[in-house]
Amino acid sequence: MIRFEDVCYAYDGVPVLLHVDFHVEKGEAVAITGPNGAGKSTVLRMVNGLIYPELGRYCYAGEEITADKMREHRYSKWFHQQVGYIWQNPDSQLFCGSVEEELAFGPAQMGLTAKEINTRVEDALALLGIESLRKRAPFTLSGGEKKKVAIASVLTMNPSVWTLDEPLSALDGKSRRWLLEFLTALKEAGKTLIFSTHEAELMEGLADKEIRMDELHQVQVL
């Protein structure tokens, strides 16, 4: 489903990914581990089509993902419905005036009817237990509430692939337990999960496979 073939990438001439090879099958839960600066977030951004290999190939569902490919509006729209991204810091993701507007934004971009958009928003609010936040501006929420809204905004898109950057960071114990249960439910529903983490509980409780990155920006698949 997802394949990196000899991928290299650099920021301002400084290598971040060096000859990276791995694949992710449909329905797998894959942990990306390694020290800060090893390239974990770079891999997630590339999986989401936000950056592209300078050398090598990244393929999704058999299609190479390139800047030219993502300039094709119909394909790009389809791709971003397939792959959802939960940023480490929800403030980087939330931008609408209210929670319900945030949840409706993605489905509206998909061209869904008002009725279907409303159904998805209501279902996500109920599933995450955030109905009381619907009229709140995201910037007024707590860290845990922002994380739930960010997840809900992806849930309304119903992607096949969920990518998460350090999903348990800055969460209290209750929120961490809830999120682990939520991710487990996604996996049981057949979703593909790719997440960066330093957390043993995610590794032990969720991951089928580990992509371990090192200070030399290389990877080992375990």
Score class of each variant (00 low, 15 high):
residue 85 Y to P: 03
residue 168 L to F: 02
residue 165 D to A: 09
residue 155 L to T: 07
residue 151 I to W: 04
residue 134 R to H: 14
residue 147 K to H: 08
residue 142 S to D: 12
residue 145 E to T: 05
residue 102 E to A: 11
residue 141 L to Q: 08
residue 158 N to R: 13
residue 122 E to G: 04
residue 97 G to M: 06
residue 138 P to Q: 08
residue 100 E to A: 10
residue 88 Q to H: 12
residue 93 Q to N: 05
residue 167 P to I: 12
residue 159 P to T: 00
residue 100 E to G: 03
residue 165 D to S: 03
residue 145 E to V: 03
residue 101 E to I: 11
residue 99 V to A: 07
residue 107 P to H: 09
residue 89 N to E: 05
residue 160 S to Q: 12
residue 94 L to K: 07
residue 131 E to Q: 10
residue 93 Q to L: 09
residue 147 K to F: 01
residue 159 P to L: 01
residue 86 I to F: 14
residue 165 D to I: 08
residue 128 L to P: 04
residue 124 A to I: 06
residue 110 M to Q: 13
residue 114 A to P: 12
residue 122 E to H: 00
residue 161 V to D: 11
residue 84 G to D: 05
residue 99 V to D: 00
residue 121 V to N: 02
residue 137 A to R: 09
residue 109 Q to Y: 07
residue 90 P to R: 12
residue 129 G to L: 00
residue 84 G to I: 01
residue 88 Q to V: 09
residue 139 F to K: 08
residue 171 L to D: 00
residue 121 V to A: 06
residue 157 M to N: 07
residue 100 E to L: 10
residue 95 F to L: 11
residue 169 S to R: 00
residue 143 G to S: 10
residue 128 L to G: 01
residue 125 L to R: 01
residue 161 V to Q: 01
residue 137 A to W: 13
residue 88 Q to G: 10
residue 171 L to T: 01
residue 157 M to Q: 03
residue 90 P to E: 10
residue 142 S to A: 11
residue 140 T to A: 13
residue 136 R to P: 01
residue 157 M to V: 10
residue 157 M to D: 03
residue 120 R to E: 08
residue 94 L to R: 08
residue 96 C to F: 11
residue 150 A to V: 13
residue 126 A to W: 02
residue 118 N to L: 13
residue 154 V to W: 10
